[in-house]
């Protein structure tokens, strides 16, 4: 039944034009930046490079720390809060599926959409890189980086769903998630202790996997931290979701 819940949620996500538009927007953005072959792009002191040989590595931070989190906010607001707000949640609650499967299905459908986004952007940047440089260098590393980024982003989806379960309005959910994200970024910048336990700081987790040496200790620590965040926020979110009346 879980697979049916995922199918149900995913069908709704891709039926909304804005989510197809976001995918197109990301492809256009990576193509534009790659085609311009920017060596440096100064935004308030931060130098971003979009040079073609390393396009997918350079674009991934923009994607995973800005574009995808905002997309996740929208997805979670639509898939969880809005459904309670306009009572369309009844449509799935009246189907033969447990609330656990429904809740997990929502989280997995959003994660699936995010994964597809990552893969599409990877493919777009790969095509650009190969077309312009005729080089297949670090193709596998690039794929690995994009594929592994889904792990911290899944934790992010689970956290956002937890927040959305508690809030009755979709616009308020969007606003709260944005505030939470900025607050986490702010706290992380000022305290290393907080930085080490907040899962949002592990979005660059893929970097552990693409060097010459695998830092097993760091990988294990970060994996356990991400996993514990997933478990905590999933359980809390599910408990709220399960108790919600329609």
């Amino acid at each position: 039944m879980l697979i049916n819940c995922v199918k149900y949620e995913f069908s709704k996500i891709i039926a909304r034009k804005k989510y197809l538009f976001i995918m197109v927007l990301e492809i256009v953005l990576v193509t534009l930046l790659g085609s311009l072959n920017w060596q440096s792009f100064d935004i308030s002191g931060t130098i971003l490079k979009f040079d073609l040989p390393n396009l997918y590595f350079n674009f991934l931070p923009v994607l995973s720390t800005f574009l995808l989190p905002v997309t996740i906010f929208m997805l979670v607001s639509d898939t969880v809060s809005l459904e309670f707000e306009n009572n369309t949640i009844k449509n799935i609650f009246l189907r033969p599926a447990s609330r656990f499967n429904i809740y997990l299905g929502k989280n997995l459908a959003i994660t699936l959409y995010v994964l597809i986004n990552l893969m599409i952007v990877y493919l777009a940047s790969l095509v650009l890189k190969v077309a312009y440089t005729m080089s297949f260098d670090s193709v596998l590393e690039g794929f690995l980086a994009y594929a592994i980024t889904i792990i911290p982003l899944f934790a992010f989806v689970v956290f956002c769903s937890f927040v959305a379960c508690k809030v009755k309005s979709s616009s308020l959910t969007m606003f709260l998630l944005l505030i939470c994200y900025l607050l986490m970024a702010f706290l992380s910048a000022y305290s290393s202790a907080i930085r080490s336990v907040l899962f949002v700081n592990y979005i660059g987790y893929y970097k552990f996997f693409i060097g010459n040496i695998l830092p097993i200790k760091y990988i294990l620590n970060s994996t356990l931290l991400i996993l514990s965040n997933v478990l905590i926020f999933f359980i809390l979110g599910y408990l709220i979701f399960d108790k919600r009346d329609v």
Partner: peptide, 10 residues
């Protein structure tokens, strides 16, 4: 139950 729960954008 109460108003129909069909999805408006579909």
């Amino acid at each position: 139950i109460e108003a129909p729960a069909s999805i408006g954008f579909l």
